[in-house]
Design a protein around this nucleic acid. Sequence first.
DNA 1: CATGAATGAGCCTTCATTCAT
DNA 2: TATGAATGAAGGCTCATTCAT
Lengths: 210, 210, 210, 210
Amino acid sequence: MKKEKSSRRQEQAAETKRRLYDSAAQLFGQYDYDEVTIDAIVQSAGVSKGSFYVHFPSKAALIDAFLSDYINGLDVTYQSFIVSLPPGIKSSEQLLTLAAKVADVLTDTIGYNRMRTAYKMQLTKAVNMETVLNYQRDLYKIFAEILRQGLTQGEFQSELSPDALTRYFVMAIRGLSYEWCIRYPDFDLKKECLEYFRILLKGIQSSEIL
Amino acid sequence: MKKEKSSRRQEQAAETKRRLYDSAAQLFGQYDYDEVTIDAIVQSAGVSKGSFYVHFPSKAALIDAFLSDYINGLDVTYQSFIVSLPPGIKSSEQLLTLAAKVADVLTDTIGYNRMRTAYKMQLTKAVNMETVLNYQRDLYKIFAEILRQGLTQGEFQSELSPDALTRYFVMAIRGLSYEWCIRYPDFDLKKECLEYFRILLKGIQSSEIL
Amino acid sequence: MKKEKSSRRQEQAAETKRRLYDSAAQLFGQYDYDEVTIDAIVQSAGVSKGSFYVHFPSKAALIDAFLSDYINGLDVTYQSFIVSLPPGIKSSEQLLTLAAKVADVLTDTIGYNRMRTAYKMQLTKAVNMETVLNYQRDLYKIFAEILRQGLTQGEFQSELSPDALTRYFVMAIRGLSYEWCIRYPDFDLKKECLEYFRILLKGIQSSEIL
Amino acid sequence: MKKEKSSRRQEQAAETKRRLYDSAAQLFGQYDYDEVTIDAIVQSAGVSKGSFYVHFPSKAALIDAFLSDYINGLDVTYQSFIVSLPPGIKSSEQLLTLAAKVADVLTDTIGYNRMRTAYKMQLTKAVNMETVLNYQRDLYKIFAEILRQGLTQGEFQSELSPDALTRYFVMAIRGLSYEWCIRYPDFDLKKECLEYFRILLKGIQSSEIL
DNA sequence: CATGAATGAGCCTTCATTCAT
DNA sequence: TATGAATGAAGGCTCATTCAT
């Protein structure tokens, strides 16, 4: 009974924190990091300014938390995707499927606003980039694995190292996502991803396959 | 006599404006736009704060003017580059040379700070993006011209429209630039541009050329 | 049974109050009164912030209580000191011993920080000074008694009234203490007290004794 | 003409600065250093908050300026006093005259409020004490000179070094001043200074003079 | 045109205090 | 009693902009 009491309170507190968090996330999607004020956040969340500092030690801490949570969510999504891939399909098919999946995730799960926020934050100094780099490492690992397999099996060939190749594919994803952010809503991310990847794949396919 | 006096004054005024502009330009190269204060600009220019508002209606106007001039300067750079290309060289060579040139311009002329700021601004949409878009249109035109030529002469082939193809090349440039911004200084923009373009070019080269 | 329960609760409550008080006392010894926050006190005490207001109506009330207790403690110290003086020793010796004792108490029991705070508070008059004045009255009484004795026994002589004389000795103590506060830690309070008192004593000693 | 124009402006600015300064000085006399807010100062001065920072880089800087000016004023007063002393009078007379002068200066020139502020500030850490120490050194030099003369001429004698002796006289002045501050207005500073100094002087007078 | 003092809204953060559980 | 989330009034300071001279 005592427990339930406290859990009710904890729920209330968590709700307040979530409201602050969500309000901030929404504002970060619309304005620059330093254009978003604590006042704006708490007003949007409907709580007092003092409450903000009950739940977050500073504005910077909120940003970090936001970015970190966001990236971690992506990781989970991608990881669960990669294990769901049917075995035995060609590496180029895998990469196209992955590209399509990423496009879907960006479009439907993450959404335009959060994505733009994340990209803007990456360009902002003074933000803890560790989590972002972790994320890059995760997405990187997925691409690396597929590419390595394609190279081993002779499906792909390149004078570039597998490592360099991987970086270019990740970069392509990021470039397309960035383009989506600045052209939104006049940009069909999934379609462009697939077309673009086809060019890239053709660029590394073995001649004999052609 | 009166004329000379006034022309002297005009010169003085122009000189003051130029000093403000140059000081701002230098500071914009080092710091974020909103980190550069009017105080810093006028102090660096050695003029009074009031003078700033004689020559510029606001800080935003100065930023716009700066950005506009800047982008226009880039156009000139690219245009003069393209006409300087020796005739008769292959389209793929032209594209590689162009990629290298763009990398040089970004690295040496524009610089990391300004580029990062520009990219962030594109994501924010808070400033007048017309000039930036113009710039994109210009770079786009250059790429389009070379690609069209390559396709006509049979050096390239693609099921994609020349227009779509062009967009992907511009996108690649932008993706690489973005990558450079977030990985700076651990990213050799020129080298990565060339390697990446080679993949893309291989992806659109006609089979017979292989 | 009910009684025992409630007495258990009372014990608990007293324990909580004591912990808050002790934590505050320790912090007051280290920092200025307005530098010590409720948060710091409750954290150090290991209780919740709400508990503080169960036991103390306000921060000011705690300070008052602390100060009052503190001064009362000093009185006891001085009183027990004065009765412990061996009978028959000269008044001037008694005064020197008392000066040394006061110096020891200030240095070891009260400490620099608390003393400085007390002196500042006396100048501010923002807090209840009754207890402090009481303290002064107590110290005053001790000095007065010894001086009266010395004058009666012919050891001292002065054209000043015993009352005035007493004030000057108390003033001397206060002046030395103040000096200690502003020169800390480059001021040997005990040594200076003794030397200074020797001058004063020589100033009131009877000629025949010289 | 241009000069006069600018001097008019300069006068205006100086007037604003003076108003801020005076308002602050008055508030510092009534409240603790950290109880005096910028808001209170500018409101009392009738200027905007921004103006404060036109004239003072920070609150701390204002305090420093205040203290420094104040102390420097004292120096001048004392220095001019010492040169006005008639030659040939006894050292003890000189010291009594000096004590009386100091009492007059404190009472009439400096005044109770400013004095209390200064004493409070000395007890407050985080204030630049250099100027205060300079002041002490100045007052110290005056006392030292008179005492040295008295010792040389055999009027005074003491087992203490002239240096130590000097410190005790300065300390006495400070102790009396402090007492005045906390007992105001029930304390006749001049009378107490003279009486107290007579005791001290008797304490260091040569036996043969007695 | 040039000057720089003046303005005031706004920023992030702190902290004593309240109150529902 | 005990808890700790919630409150909101300050606090020191910044900075783009205005305006009288």
